[in-house]
Nucleic acid binder design. Structure first.
Lengths: 199, 199
DNA sequence: CTTGGTTTTGAACGGGTGTTCAGATAATCC
DNA sequence: GGATTATCTGAACACCCGTTCAAAACCAAG
């Protein structure tokens, strides 16, 4: 007989609902402007009950950000060898992945200043990992001569800023489809790193 | 005899100090996380005294953002006719201007969600004016054939996102000088819009 | 020195904050 | 159905919030 599923348990229902509510509210109004009571209200529970699911508000924020970045790193396609194809995959992936979770993306770079120092360092390390993968692609392409990037580190930051910017304006159902946006951005990125169009 | 300078007046000293403190604290910790008492403490005054200089906290934030954007619009160089030269001027100006006032820049796009609807609309209108100027440059260059931008509106947003990203990492005294950063970004922007290097 | 005005204080107002915890409630197991 | 255990409530804690305002302090002019 496996360990009992435990009694009186709504934990597996309420838990995700707390995280969802926190994600949405933090994204919309900001961490500092959202009270635990408001999150609880959204879930349909009293504030005290939240503390069955997080030790405190700060950890709730931290977990949302960390989980998002870990998901990002796990979902990211891995190297295949061809720097240009790799960069294209990176661009399309970045836009697509971020488009699917606008709230998490927004929080992960708007609420950095509300993290306590240790938590901040942990999040920054994860983000850095992601950036490093793009930097590796650019550096490799620069060495083999398919890219013209004088400074791969700066090019990395420039490209990521450009791509993440999509989230500030793109909404499904607008003038452009997501894949059209991906086409346009891939075109701009490819050119910005000095790679000639392939036709 | 000109109107008296009024008596007991420290207004012209305290006023700017309030704005400076608010700018710095809002940028560092966020609007919602900064109390009027903390701003007052920074100025060396009691909280009640702040209300000689702003009707309320919200207006204090709004004024900081509005004044920043008005300054931005006023400082921006005007058109000269040559789209490529114009774009280069825009890129270098944007990086330079924003580098000089990191706190105001940070606030102006991090605290948008803390603006009441009317204030938000006013700020957005100003930002839009700025973006329109870049879009006009790109559109003109596209028409005359010196730029290859299929969608000037998106290109505008992409370029601005890329340029504003500089503020998140560049600090004077680091590996690169500001003018080197301007050179690199101008290179990337020029390429991204399909304009050939001029030598 | 007195007058008149500006600026600041300091206390108060009503209300919201994150967090804790004893007790009530509900769900499963035997 | 009774026991067990996870979950939730509701009140309490100490503290902070933006804002107001009468009274005090301050400064310059006459």
């Amino acid at each position: 007989m496996q360990m009992a599923r435990t009694a009186g348990s709504h934990s597996d229902i309420t838990g995700p609902r707390v995280r969802d509510a926190a994600l949405r509210l933090f994204a919309r109004d900001g961490y500092a402007a959202v009270s635990m009571r408001r999150i609880a209200g959204e879930v349909g529970v009293q504030a005290g009950a939240l503390y069955n699911y997080t030790p405190d508000k700060q950890t709730l924020l931290f977990d949302l950000m960390r989980d998002h970045l870990i998901e990002l790193l796990a979902a990211q396609p891995q190297d295949t060898g061809d720097a240009v194809a790799e960069l294209e995959r990176f661009v399309r992936f970045h836009i697509g992945f971020h488009h699917d979770r606008p709230d998490a993306v927004f929080i992960a770079y708007m609420e950095l200043r509300n993290l306590e120092p240790d938590n901040f360092a942990a999040i920054e390390a994860l983000r850095r990992q992601y950036e490093d993968r793009l930097e590796a692609i650019l550096r490799r392409g620069a060495q083999t001569g398919v890219f013209a990037v004088p400074d791969p580190k700066i090019a990395t930051l420039a490209v990521i800023a450009m791509l993440t910017g999509v989230n500030t304006w793109f909404r499904a159902g607008g003038r452009l489809r997501l894949d059209e946006v991906q086409d346009i951005y891939w075109d701009m990125v490819r050119r910005s790193v000095g790679s000639a169009p392939d036709r």
